[in-house]
Design a protein around this nucleic acid. Structure first.
Length: 737
DNA sequence: GGTTGGAAACTTTTT
DNA sequence: GTTTCCAACC
């Protein structure tokens, strides 16, 4: 029996189709990663050099997982397969060849904070009123332009006589100039510059076309135009391009993902083979039914319907709470109960929400309940002030042209160097056409600096000393010495506050991350470390073998699965977000929200609970939201609703449709009326005191006592083998014998 | 040049 | 409700 016999016919077909373009439409939980790794194994079995195989993903976590699974499946030779994210692939190419584009190979990678700083400076230079054009907005315009591979010049030409758009093009141009001056690239540039490199240097492109003869792209529905171009260029010669995606899980339009990359794949590659994977191996029937019911409300999707051989499973539960606190408390209580009753471990539970801000309530309750948890998202570890400070030192050592980094740390810790001094240095640098840091090196020659020059010299001496130590010291030693000589940690220690203490702890953690990098990387160096740091996403830190409840946004959850999933905040205005409802193109935006909902639902393997709150604190004020329209799209037959204090009032308080909704509803094939929710609270139990019952895990037992709680019945059962347990009726699922 | 307090903005999602 | 920013002070 071969490893391919475990695949279903469609999966097998996808694995065996190795030559020419291939589009795999893989529904949620249909085993697409499995197909990809088997495909790699098959290619190698056909005698294809693993060196010629490339698999691209979006996150490091996905890449790491694929790498591991390929290693396990094929063993020898698999290490030569190129498995990496889009961004790290580009960085690796650019580190070699970016000289052709006039950058230095030790370029910095700017994160969102850095981008903002650059933009601020740009606005100042160009006299842009940031009250009218917010930096955030300007950056998003530029980012979208880059996603579409539009240069500042093209943007200017496209603007025509439109003054505002011309102005935007100007900003874009200046922003790029500033990045170049700093020898820096932003995230989007990593892709754009690689495409540019390939277009400018056909011989470099060809060498990579030869290298990557077999390409595979995961999460293809989230690629943007630039990424598509990159792939097309690479696959241009051999055309062995296999893309795997699910248009129903496209949730990154806001970030430039172009859904037409998947919808029009067959037009771009007319000879493409298309294979649909519709069998789901992950979820129960009930979960899948609900997912299908929700997603079918979207138009403009490739028709498919997921099915499964799995058991019907428990009904999906919807619970409406009075407020967010109660929601958090009950969800956490539910998880605690699950674990206590042995139905699962902490790691089996995930709480998903639309916005990061929602995590706080859950965190508080989790801490209170003493439940270990992992929060994904929010403030990135590497975005913390103290970490960014240390990183800025390292960047300065690595890339002297990164002015942003230099400016960040020149007065941290305090050296008495202020704005006036910096401006004079800046002027000098400008006058002589040298970098800011090089000007600092010549502090003594700069006129009007006076005593300030004496404050600058110790700083540059320190950096220079560190630079010369780069080769001889390990990165860990370098960082430690840096912290020692700058007195950064000492200053924090002197502060003595709780906050300073946590900063010190973060720095310690940072040091151990450097050590870990040195131990695992093939050829560790400073640039490599900085690059890795720049490209980690928060989701990459999720460890499957640690036992904790996971909290994250629905976006972060894509590609993951959990036995028990809680989707919190199912309220109109929150999810779907207010932004999508009030957008210029609500239909389109709501469809994306609906896909997000679909992604959330399909994360669940065994049980899914949807929750909402009648009132919720948003930005300090209480908001009253209606229950999410997505809940209303779920036929009642699949839902068990509990949580209402009184079933009758709950039914009455069922949110009424507003005018907008009603007008929408009249265009639907499936009217809302047929989908109303009725309360099917555990109103009648089929057993009573003294009855013999059976529990899925504890076996048979006798009911000792039933107490009616606010939300549920609490049943005390004496099990024959497991002893006396107190269970909640809606979760214990006791069956009368 | 550094510190402090109060106002304003902020929240949709991220490599 | 929280974080960030800026202006007026020291």
């Amino acid at each position: 029996m071969s490893i391919y016999d475990t695949l279903n016919p469609e999966q097998k077909e996808a694995v065996l189709h190795t030559e020419g373009p291939l589009l795999i439409l893989a529904g949620a939980g249909s085993g697409k990663t499995r197909v990809l790794i088997h495909r790699i194994a098959w290619l190698m079995e056909q005698g294809i050099n693993p060196w010629n195989i490339m698999a691209i993903t979006f996150t490091n976590k996905a890449a790491g997982e694929m790498r591991e699974r390929v290693d396990n499946l094929v063993g020898f030779g698999s290490e030569s397969v190129w498995v990496a994210t889009f961004h790290s692939t580009c960085v690796r190419i650019l580190r070699r060849y970016i000289g052709h584009l006039g950058f230095d190979t030790s370029f910095s990678i700017y994160d969102t904070d850095d981008q903002k700083s650059v933009m601020k400076d740009v606005c100042k230079r160009l006299n842009v009123d940031t009250k009218i054009f917010k930096e955030r907005y300007l950056l998003s315009v530029i980012s979208r332009a880059k996603d579409e591979l539009a240069s500042p010049l093209e943007m200017e030409l496209a603007a025509g006589t439109d003054f505002q758009r011309k102005r935007l093009a100007e900003v874009y141009k200046e922003y790029q100039a500033q990045l170049r001056r700093n020898n820096a690239l932003d995230f989007d540039d990593l892709i754009v510059k690689t495409v540019e490199l390939f277009q400018n240097c056909p011989e470099i492109l060809e060498s990579y076309q030869e290298r990557f003869r077999y390409l595979m792209v995961d999460e293809y529905q989230d690629t943007n135009t630039a990424q598509f171009k990159l792939i097309s260029l690479l696959a241009g010669k051999y055309r062995n391009l296999c893309v795997v995606g699910d248009d129903d899980q496209s949730i990154y339009k806001f970030r430039g993902a172009n859904i037409y990359n998947i919808l029009n794949f067959e037009q771009v590659f007319p000879d493409a083979k298309v294979i649909k994977l519709e069998q789901n191996y992950r979820s129960t029937q009930n979960i899948l039914n609900v997912a299908n019911e929700v997603i079918r409300n979207n138009r403009g999707r490739k028709e498919k319907r997921l099915w499964t051989d799995n058991v019907e499973g428990e009904p999906i539960v919807f619970r409406l709470f009075t407020n967010g606190f109660e929601e958090a408390e009950q969800v956490i209580g539910d998880i605690g109960r699950h674990v206590r009753e042995g139905e699962g471990e902490y790691r089996d539970h995930a709480i998903l929400y639309r916005t990061n801000a929602q995590s706080r309530l859950f965190e508080e309750k989790l801490i209170f309940a003493g439940i270990p948890y992992k929060l994904i998202g929010g403030v990135n570890f590497y975005a913390r002030k103290e970490i960014k400070d240390v990183l800025a030192y390292l960047k300065t050592i690595d890339n002297g042209r990164d002015e942003l980094a230099v400016r960040r740390i020149i007065n941290v810790p305090k050296r008495g160097i202020g704005a006036t001094t910096l401006n004079r240095v800046q002027d000098y640098a400008g006058a002589y056409g040298i970098s800011f840091y090089d000007a600092l090196l010549r502090a003594e020659e700069i006129p009007n600096l006076g005593r300030s020059a004496g404050k600058i010299i110790p700083f540059t001496t320190l950096i220079e000393r560190m630079r010369s130590a780069v080769g001889s010291l390990s990165l860990t030693e370098l960082a430690k010495q840096l912290l020692e000589e700058t007195g950064y940690v000492k200053e924090l220690e002197a502060e003595g506050t709780e906050e300073a203490q946590s900063r010190i702890e973060n720095i310690d953690e940072f040091i151990s991350k450097i050590t870990a990098y040195e131990e695992t990387a093939e050829a560790p160096d400073l640039s490599g470390f900085l690059e890795e740091v720049a490209l980690v996403a928060d989701i990459d830190t999720l460890e499957e073998n640690s036992n904790y409840v996971v909290l994250m946004t629905l976006h972060s959850a894509k590609g993951l699965e959990f036995p028990y999933v809680y989707m919190a905040g199912m309220e109109d205005g929150l999810f779907p977000s207010y932004m999508s409802i009030a957008s210029d193109t609500p239909e389109e935006d709501l469809e994306e929200e609906r896909r997000l909902c679909y992604v959330g639902i399909t994360r669940a393997k065994r049980e899914l609970m949807l929750t909402a709150a009648r009132q919720r604190m948003v930005r300090g004020e209480t908001r009253y939201n209606m229950v999410s329209r997505f809940i209303q799209e779920i036929p009642e037959q699949y839902l068990a609703q509990t949580g209402a204090k009184n079933p009758l009032t709950a039914a009455k308080e069922r949110p009424r449709q507003d005018a907008w909704q009603q007008s929408k509803a009249s265009f639907r094939s499936k009217p809302y009326e047929s989908q109303t929710l009725t309360v099917t609270k555990a109103s009648g139990l089929e057993y009573t005191t003294g009855d013999r019952v059976r529990h899925i895990k504890f076996g048979d037992g006798t009911v000792l006592e039933i107490t009616e709680g606010k939300k549920d019945y609490e049943v005390k059962v004496e099990f024959d083998t497991a002893g006396i347990k107190r269970l909640f009726a809606s979760f214990a699922k006791l069956r009368k014998l």
